[in-house]
Amino acid sequence: MFSKGFFIVSQFYPSYDGRNKKSYRMLFTHGYWLLHRDHNHVGEIFVFEQRDAAKRLYDFKVTTGERYGSKTSLRFHRAMTQKGAAAAVADGHGELLEYFSPTYQEAEEFARIAAERREQAYRDDVATYRALIEKAHERFPKMDRSAIPQPNEDNPHTEAIYLGHYAISLFRCGAISADEIDRAQKSSKNGFSDYRYAEDRYELVMVPN
């Protein structure tokens, strides 16, 4: 039967054991596969048709090997589908093209870099939500501003969450459009939980006038 060549980037964490196929499950999300075992995230697999694209991701994923014992590889495998190629690599198959497992010192350094990267991403999300919120209040200048979350320089993660919740409240009372909240959420560097229509989650406390 017809098969196609794929280039596969995988990153497995120390807790991953590919020797037992029944020990994990593959979940497809955002264009790649997550590997879970007992509800724990133990790896990621990305499948490409072009080697250059796979190589670029591999080089980046090497720098995210922030756990000592993690394993990052670039492999080539022929399969009927991308999912088949991903499953084969999860089971340890495929021609190994490149491989990296960090030393303890490298893992520590990558963890430091990753922490800085995450903090900057949260700061970017804070800026996005604050701009969206300010625009809404400029549109409705009589709306109470006292509930806007205060800046939290020491914890941009928490600040971004509170601002996201506040932006949802503005959306629910009509001060922010669906298109605006969509653009803000899709531009988030850290993902988001869309509670726009969860009536038991947010209490409407502001009304434009």
Results as ranks from 00 to 15, higher is better:
G43M: 03
V47Y: 05
V47I: 04
F48A: 03
E49G: 09
Q50V: 06
D52H: 10
A53D: 05
K55M: 11
K55Q: 13
R56G: 01
R56A: 11
L57E: 04
D59S: 02
D59A: 02
F60Y: 05
K61A: 04
K61F: 11
T64I: 01
T64A: 00
T64Y: 04
R67F: 15
Y68R: 03
G69T: 09
G69K: 07
G69V: 03
S70M: 08
K71L: 15
T72I: 12
S73P: 05
S73E: 13
S73K: 06
S73I: 07
L74S: 00
R75K: 14
H77E: 10
A79I: 03
T81F: 12
K83Q: 08
K83W: 10
G84R: 08
A85R: 03
A87Y: 08
A88M: 12
V89Y: 02
A90F: 12
D91E: 13
D91N: 13
D91T: 09
G92Q: 11
G92P: 09
H93Q: 10
H93V: 10
H93C: 09
E95N: 09
L96C: 03
L97W: 08
S101D: 03
T103S: 09
T103G: 03
Q105D: 12
Q105C: 07
E106K: 10
E108D: 07
F110Y: 07
F110H: 05
F110V: 06
A111R: 09
R112A: 13
I113L: 06
I113G: 00
I113W: 05
A114W: 03
A115C: 02
A115R: 14
E116H: 10
E119H: 08
Q120G: 08
Y122Q: 02
Y122H: 09
Y122T: 07
R123Y: 01
D124H: 06
V126G: 05
A127V: 12
T128Y: 13
Y129C: 07
Y129G: 04
L132I: 00
L132T: 00
A136Q: 07
E138P: 06
R139A: 14
R139T: 04
F140V: 03
F140G: 01
F140L: 01
P141R: 01
P141A: 06
P141F: 07
P141T: 03
K142M: 10
M143P: 00
D144W: 09
S146A: 10
P149M: 12
P149C: 11
P151E: 05
N152Q: 15
D154C: 08
N155A: 11
H157E: 13
H157G: 10
T158N: 15
E159I: 01
I161P: 03
I161L: 15
I161K: 14
I161N: 13
I161Q: 13
G164I: 02
G164L: 11
H165Y: 14
H165G: 07
Y166I: 06
A167D: 00
A167H: 00
A167N: 01
A167M: 02
I168M: 12
F171V: 04
R172C: 03
C173A: 11
C173S: 07
A175Y: 02
I176Q: 05
S177L: 07
A178Y: 02
A178C: 13
D179A: 15
E180V: 05
I181E: 01
D182A: 06
D182C: 07
R183C: 14
Q185G: 10
K186E: 12
K186R: 14
K186T: 09
S187Y: 05
S187G: 07
N190R: 14
N190V: 15
G191L: 05
